Amino acid sequence: MKKQLCFIAGSLAFSLGFIGIFLPLLPTTPFMILAAGCFAKSSPRFHQALLNNRFIGADLRRWESERTMLRVTKIRATWIIVVMFSISIAILYERHWLQLMLIVIAAILLFFLWRVPEQKTKAN
């Protein structure tokens, strides 16, 4: 039963993470990390599929082993957040309270993103 609930939770997290690629209010990375964690307990096949994915696999493996992110990943995520939220704010022209809400959400996302430890550089 626990295995099935983890699989369902992993599938839901993966779906939300995938949708988050296109919607700025749904952060992709935390949902993919959650999906990987759920699949690690329920489906080794899906867990490996995530870890071997050419787009997110290296970041997920790094998170599982070190609980860190690369600075370049943070910068890329920052740009995506800024661009997507800017587009959303522009679309909501003259809806000031919604624009303010989006600004606050973006600021919170960026705050937590930049609190994640960065991968330590390896000495040569």
Rank of each mutant, 00 (worst) to 15 (best):
M1C: 03
K3H: 09
K3W: 06
C6R: 11
C6N: 12
F7G: 00
A9P: 03
G10Q: 03
L12V: 15
F14Q: 05
F14G: 02
S15Q: 00
I19H: 02
I19G: 01
I19E: 00
G20W: 09
G20C: 08
I21P: 01
F22Q: 04
P24T: 09
P24Y: 03
P24I: 07
P27L: 10
P27T: 14
T29C: 00
F31P: 10
F31A: 03
A35G: 07
G37H: 12
G37D: 04
F39P: 04
F39W: 03
F39I: 06
A40W: 14
A40R: 14
S42T: 10
P44M: 02
R45K: 15
H47N: 12
H47S: 13
A49F: 15
L51N: 13
R54E: 11
R54H: 13
F55D: 05
G57N: 02
D59A: 15
D59N: 11
D59F: 07
L60Q: 06
R61W: 04
R62P: 05
S65A: 12
L70K: 15
T73S: 13
T73V: 09
K74T: 12
K74P: 10
I75V: 15
R76H: 12
T78Y: 05
W79T: 10
I80M: 11
I81W: 03
I81L: 07
V82C: 07
M84S: 14
M84R: 05
M84Y: 12
S86Y: 07
S86W: 06
S86T: 13
I87V: 15
I89D: 02
I91D: 00
I91T: 14
L92R: 11
Y93A: 09
E94C: 08
E94F: 13
R95S: 08
R95T: 07
R95K: 13
H96P: 10
H96Q: 07
L98F: 13
L98Q: 09
I103Y: 01
I103S: 02
I105G: 00
A107V: 13
A107R: 04
I108Q: 01
L109G: 01
L110F: 07
F111M: 08
F112P: 04
W114M: 06
V116K: 03
V116C: 02
V116S: 00
P117I: 11
P117D: 02
E118K: 13
T121W: 00
N124Y: 11
N124K: 09
